[in-house]
Nucleic acid binder design. Structure first.
Lengths: 368, 368
DNA sequence: TTGAAAGCGCTACCAA
DNA sequence: TTGGTAGCGCTTTCAA
């Protein structure tokens, strides 16, 4: 270290105090300034593309930057409020095409707006979720997105309150995505889509074809998405004058295996049905597998429908009739709200869904 | 602001200087200290779970923290070197099940090790990729993961050099995931899998069944993954004593549509083939669609194989014979290297792939 | 147009 | 066990 350059007369002896916390890089803004023979302020201005700096000075600085391989410290920058915004995407599992489309939508808008997309998975663990929320509060994230269905009810509300408690003081927004507004916490923005309507249309399509015994598979209890879908299904049945039959509602998880097991169970129970409504496309895919194995023709013997319209459903045999959910749009909307691009007040947006009729539905077989 | 507390004799008048850069929260560690009647150092110790603090003091502090709704500033903390590590996952598009499995693997290991998983998409835009690398260097990320195949050759090398130039000075690791080592830059760690061997086995399976005219669809030019797969295919043909026929190699993107278009093209050209090797499962799915539309039976008329073994391939009709790629494992490995869990030196790991025979392959039809 | 210097909020050293 | 305090690296007045 050259100490000859100090212009001051008296040399303060043990001024040198070292405590390198960031051991990686020793080249900081000050070093660049020194190298370029200007002040730190000037370097900062150059880096911030500030107008008021003479071209020659700027060049000099930039040359030093290059020469020293200097990279601004975004962390320090963030501390002064000039950092990148963070949009945190909290989801249970990073699986499935719907997740991908949704995340893509969020990421697009985030990076269009110069924000950083941070993905956090909870694996359904409430503790982990809280940890993420806390971390994001600490990082002063712009927004935390709670993505996907989560359990409803009292417990959920108090959980959200807990989150708010951490996020509010630091100004981080909390947003529900794919989940209806929490009635007790209307302040929390929510971007969701019409699960009820989608399931209604789907069921209606089935009853219009003449089906009267329609199995609902994948009724995971106490979960907003499913319960809305279930409600839509029930409403459509009622409107068609079909009596509710709880036997036809099969529980189980929202997965391929869940669908497979659900159908297997239904057949073991000798349930009588001519159509199956999977609570999601994944469920329907599993259902299809089970149906095929049992030698049932789709839609000859049994009609099958799903919900979500994930990409590959069109490539199944038969191509699946389903409800299209605009996941990417949902993501874009959510990010827009997260970044405050849509106005200030709490928002509750519900996107429309759309029935897509393909090959897996037909008239019920004529029973004699 | 109380100015009475200044112990100095002379009161400098316009000392009050305000410039609130973080407008959200005014409660900082100092505020907590004041509220609790202790020093900042003590609060810091409590928050860091340091041993040397009396229980009563700790309680007092924690009470103040709760009362004030204080949340530590992770940014400031990061500046002193105590921040969360960042693992940045750079990928072209956030699509497909293979992406999900891979990302999941990385995320798992990252959060097991208390690091933050940041997902960045480039949409195939080199400029965007560089921007991300720069940002991550600024954020002092622990590692940047370049995920997925990327073009090969001279240009690629100089691109990597450019990245290194930004990442090296700040100690951020650069890692290639799903991409073989760069011959010119052996320092850069790479975690990949055996594309050549996978394609070889697959082709071998086909030739063993008696196929001699095997179409390769999805030969996107100048891309490491494909070129390795293509090489494996060619090697297997050669080993089976089958002459190479470039006509049978169809270009096009690595997607469902790419597969569809590829087959359509091949049939328009009246190409003679009894089996199709899709460069990826997506390609094969598209190929299957086209084949079906043309009235070809699979595997009766044409055998079809893919590579990747993405979840839904088992649910196609017929279930697809493919090569299983351990994406999640790949992700876990990559993250481990990224976080330096495996030793210090540059690593080049190649994971094994495995042939999965399902229903889409059979003997070629007997031609008379 | 440029420089000096005061923070931003936290951690860690050194004394007490 | 606790407090004082000097940084970490940057931005931004204020004055020159």
């Amino acid at each position: 270290m050259s100490q000859a350059e100090a212009p001051g007369a008296e040399i303060v002896s043990q001024r040198v105090k070292r405590r390198g916390p960031a051991p990686a890089s020793r080249t900081n803004l000050r070093a660049v300034a020194q190298h370029a023979g200007v002040s730190a302020a000037t370097v900062s201005r150059v880096l911030a593309d500030s107008e008021s700096v003479r071209p020659e000075t700027r060049d000099k600085v930039l040359r030093s930057v290059a020469e020293l391989g200097y990279v601004v410290n975004g962390l320090a920058r963030a501390m002064t409020g000039r950092g990148k915004q963070i949009v945190a995407f909290l989801v249970s599992e990073m699986v499935g095409p719907s997740f991908a489309a949704l995340a893509n939508g969020v990421e697009q808008v985030a990076s269009e707006n110069d924000a950083m997309f941070v993905l956090c998975t909870t694996h359904g663990d409430a503790e982990r979720e809280l940890e993420w929320v806390t971390l994001m509060a600490q990082q002063r994230a712009a927004a935390v997105l709670l993505v996907g269905a989560s359990p409803m009810g009292e417990q959920h509300t108090s959980r959200l309150k807990r989150y708010l408690q951490e996020l509010d003081p630091v100004g981080t927004r909390l947003i529900l995505c794919g989940h209806p507004p929490s009635p007790d916490l209307p302040r929390i923005a929510s971007i969701s889509y019409d699960n009820h309507g989608g399931a209604y249309e789907l069921t209606r399509h089935l009853t219009d074809l003449g089906h009267r015994k329609i199995l609902f598979v994948g009724a995971e209890p106490n979960q907003s998405t499913v319960s809305d879908r279930l409600a839509g299904y029930q409403k459509a049945l009622a409107d068609a004058g079909i009596a509710a039959d709880d036997e036809l509602i099969i529980g189980g998880p929202f997965t391929i295996d869940g669908g497979y097991d659900g159908i297997t169970l239904a057949m073991n129970r000798n349930l009588d049905f001519t159509a199956v409504l999977g609570a999601s496309d994944a469920v329907s895919i599993g259902a299809l597998r089970a149906l095929k194995q049992a030698g049932k023709a789709v839609p000859g013997d049994v009609s099958l429908v799903g919900i979500d319209d994930v990409p590959l459903t069109a490539d199944l045999t038969p191509a699946l009739t389903t409800v299209h959910v605009p996941f990417e749009e949902l993501g874009r909307m959510t990010a827009a709200v997260a970044l405050g691009l849509t106005g200030e007040q709490a928002e509750h947006i519900e996107l429309k869904t759309e029935l897509v009729i393909r090959e897996s539905t037909g008239h019920p077989p004529v029973t004699e």
